[in-house]
Simulated scan of single mutants.
Amino acid sequence: MLTEVKIKTLKPKEKPYKLFDEKGLYLFVTPNGSKYWRYDYRYNGKRKTASFGVYPEVSLKQARQKRDEARASIRQGVDISQKKKKTEEAIYFKTIAMEWLQVRQVEIKPGHLKTIKCRLNKYILPNIGDKPLREITKSDISHIIDTLRKIGQIETARRVKQIISQVFRFAMFRDLTDKDPTIIYKLPPCTNKKHMPAILDPDKVGELLRKIESYRSYIVKNALLLLSLTFVRPFELRTAQWKEININEAVWDIPEEKTKTKVPHRVFLSRQAQEILKGLKNLTGTSPERYVFEGLRNKPISESTLNKALRSLGYNTKTEITSHGFRAMARTLIHEKLGYPPEVIEHQLAHKVPDRLGEAYNRTKFYMERKEMLQAWADYLWSLKGSSKRSSKNIK
């Protein structure tokens, strides 16, 4: 028999495989790691298979309940596969996609939600929106994905396939279908993974900071300087509110609803960061609810504002530096120039990457090391900023 512990530790193999529970219920594990509940039964002397959804959306306990309900229906002379087919015929992809989107919109950020809606309306719904779930085949999926691949939109194709798959998994969880046709469509491995451009030469970092300091907008200038000191994600910086920041205790606690990992993240404020925030508090700090980097109509500045500032300073945001590139800059130079271990840096970056002990991120781990590291990083950056006449390569 299966257990929750055993299921969680299952690893994908080169070929799909099955793990049996009891009374016909088993878990079908695919090479990409997906785990599907299946139930084998006999009806009128014929062997048939029903699907009960995807793990972990459907737990072991729920799958067993579905199996017991199916066994009861079969004893009453009902073929559960035919019953499900009739249900599928009445449900169109667009209908279930809108229901899935309504559930997802409370979990994701507005910018990402806008992107998903755009991809649905532009690439997916015009092709399969008016089709019943049961009639959507691998060929329909291939047509959508291959059209994008032919014009070089490989990453978009990957994301579109992911959206279609999530809609089908949502339908499977609700017992509205027993298949996800995207599973059998394989995209080639991504060979050109996108990396955010970043400046890694210390002398050029110093030049960048001096240019930022000369920028005309006080709000945007200090946003970029604080981004370099804290290397948080641009969204976390732009939407920072004064209620998150305690200058006296030198900490900035970013709430889980603003982080990519959905886990609260603590940023330790260096002396340089505190000075920047003290100056900004006189301008936007009149209320705890106000944004630190407030733009027009009491809204936060946009990410395009930060990248536009970098372009106006003479930088190509596609090849040289982008607002997100400050993270890569910090990760590389803190390790190479200041000698801090990767696990400390990764924790401050709020990455969900296990450390050498296999422990995932928690905001209080490496507390003292991270606090010391951010101050050392700030001192290093400010020394680069002041090194206009001598080489910064000798600064350690």
Rank of each mutant, 00 (worst) to 15 (best):
R356C: 02
K18A: 12
V160N: 03
A273D: 02
K150W: 06
E213N: 13
T305H: 04
A330F: 10
L113W: 02
I219Y: 02
E57T: 12
E275N: 08
I151Q: 14
R311H: 11
W252G: 11
L283C: 01
I145E: 00
N127L: 06
K122W: 04
L224E: 01
T87F: 06
A171H: 06
A240V: 12
E275M: 09
V78L: 10
L280N: 02
K131A: 01
P264I: 05
G279D: 05
H351T: 00
Y215T: 13
T30V: 03
V54P: 02
V220C: 03
M1V: 15
R159I: 02
Y41D: 04
K211F: 11
L176A: 09
M98A: 12
R297E: 01
K396Y: 01
R311G: 13
E88P: 07
A72R: 08
P288V: 08
A198D: 00
V292E: 02
E89I: 02
A250Y: 04
I247F: 06
L148R: 08
A72D: 14
D379W: 00
Y43N: 02
L200A: 06
A90K: 06
D180Y: 03
T259A: 12
I128E: 01
L25P: 03
S214K: 13
A360L: 11
K193C: 07
G279K: 12
K46V: 08
R356H: 08
K393G: 01
I108Q: 04
F20L: 08
T286W: 12
P132S: 04
T115Y: 03
R149G: 15
K84W: 00
S81A: 13
T332E: 08
K211I: 14
F231V: 13
G129W: 10
S142R: 09
K258Q: 14
S312F: 09
L296Y: 10
L313I: 05
